Simulated scan of single mutants.
Amino acid sequence: MNRPYTIIVSEVTVDGKLTLRKGRSSKEIMQFMDEEANRYLHETRAKVDGIMVGAETIRTDNPFLTVRYVEGKNPTRIIPTSKADIPFDANILGKHAPTIIVTTESAPKEKVEALKEKVEVLIIGKESVDLIKMMDKLYSLGIHSLMVEGGSTLNWQLLKLGLVDEIRIIHMPFIVGGENTPTFVGGKGFEKLEDVIKLKLRAHFLRGSHLITEWEVKY
């Protein structure tokens, strides 16, 4: 299988949280990122062919997923969603950058057709998006480098399938807490120590007031 070189980039609190509570926007936390940390994030966006988030992130945050703060091209926006449940007023359906919605045979036909009028739609999988086939298809479309900005469910699905090459964390200097608050990686998780995904620290540095760590994923 050919697939894009894939980097997960995320803003994470000291206790590993992505938001203040389940269902809350990550923008609440991101507003505390200083200009240099934002430049780092957007520098990464400008260097990749594609940027991916899950459908829940679209519904909660309604991001543009474009390059700002620095000069550079907008990557192709890629949204895997088994039910094609993307709001029709979502910012990623605008003309700011190309968008690909990846959905399934089980998605409501009327939703799929409505989305096709706005952006490119790929059908990959029956009940859930086949992420392995999706990655192969994206590579064939010229997406050879991919930045993933979560959330926690998508991060877990990609990591457990061995589809991630790097993780880059922008550390947010505060603690949120909460048993049900989304963490950097959600999903079922690993129950055995021998199954956990190992990382190798590649770099750590400050951008503005934020610690940034970059990790190689060692499957």
Score class of each variant (00 low, 15 high):
Glu36Asp: 11
Gly151Lys: 13
Asn2Lys: 12
Gly23Arg: 13
Phe174Gly: 01
Pro87Glu: 05
Asn2His: 08
Tyr219Ala: 11
Leu18Asn: 01
Pro80Trp: 07
Pro87Cys: 07
Pro80Arg: 13
Ile124Asp: 10
Pro87Met: 08
Thr76Ser: 08
Ile79Met: 09
Lys198Ala: 15
Pro63Leu: 15
Ile197Leu: 08
Met135Leu: 11
Val129Ile: 12
Gly177Ala: 02
Ala90Asp: 09
Leu65Lys: 07
Thr19His: 01
Ile29Phe: 04
Met52Trp: 10
Asp89Phe: 07
Glu36His: 12
Ser26Tyr: 14
Phe64Trp: 09
Met134Asp: 08
Glu28Pro: 06
Ile78Gly: 09
Thr183Val: 04
Gly178Arg: 00
His210Cys: 07
Val67Gln: 05
Gly150Cys: 03
Tyr5Met: 01
Ile86Asn: 01
Lys83Arg: 13
Leu65Asp: 11
Trp156Thr: 11
Leu65Ile: 13
Ile92Ala: 12
Gly187Thr: 10
Val185Cys: 02
Lys126Trp: 14
Val14Asn: 03
Phe174Ile: 01
Ser26Met: 04
Ile101Asp: 14
Lys22Trp: 09
Leu41Cys: 07
Arg202Met: 01
Ile124Val: 13
Gly94Tyr: 14
Tyr40Ile: 07
Ser106Leu: 02
Glu179Arg: 05
Ala84Leu: 02
Met172Gln: 05
Phe64Leu: 02
Leu115Ala: 15
Trp156Glu: 14
Thr104Tyr: 14
Tyr139Asp: 10
Ser145Phe: 01
Lys160His: 15
Leu131Phe: 07
Leu158Trp: 05
Leu65Ser: 08
Lys83Ile: 15
Val12Asn: 03
Gly178Ala: 05
Leu65Trp: 11
Phe205Thr: 09
Ile124Tyr: 13
Tyr219Ile: 15
Val164His: 04
Trp156Asp: 10
Arg77Thr: 11
Asp136Glu: 15
Ile86Leu: 07
Ala46Tyr: 02
Asn180Tyr: 13
Gly162Lys: 00
Pro75His: 08
Pro75Gly: 06
Tyr40Pro: 00
Thr153Pro: 11
Pro173Ser: 04
Asp34Glu: 02
Phe190Ile: 06
Glu113Ile: 06
His171Lys: 12
Lys73His: 09
Lys73Asn: 09
Asn2Gly: 01
Gln31Leu: 03
Glu28Ile: 10
Asn62Trp: 06
Val129Phe: 15
Asp136Tyr: 05
Leu211Ser: 08
Pro75Lys: 08
Ser145Lys: 06
Asp61Cys: 08
Ile92Trp: 12
Lys218His: 03
Met52Phe: 02
Ala84Phe: 08
Val196Ser: 10
Val14Leu: 03
Val12Lys: 09
Val14Gln: 00
Glu120Ala: 11
Ser152Glu: 14
His171Asn: 03
Ile123Ser: 13
Gly177Ile: 00
Val185Tyr: 03
Met30Ala: 13
Lys126Val: 08
Tyr69Asn: 13
Asp195Lys: 04
Phe174Pro: 00
Pro75Gln: 03
His210Gly: 12
Tyr69Gly: 05
Ile100Gln: 07
Tyr69Trp: 10
Arg39Gly: 10
Leu93Asp: 12
Ala37Asn: 14
His171Ser: 14
Gly186Asp: 09
Asn91Gln: 14
Ile169Tyr: 13
Pro182Phe: 04
His204Gly: 02
Leu193Asn: 13
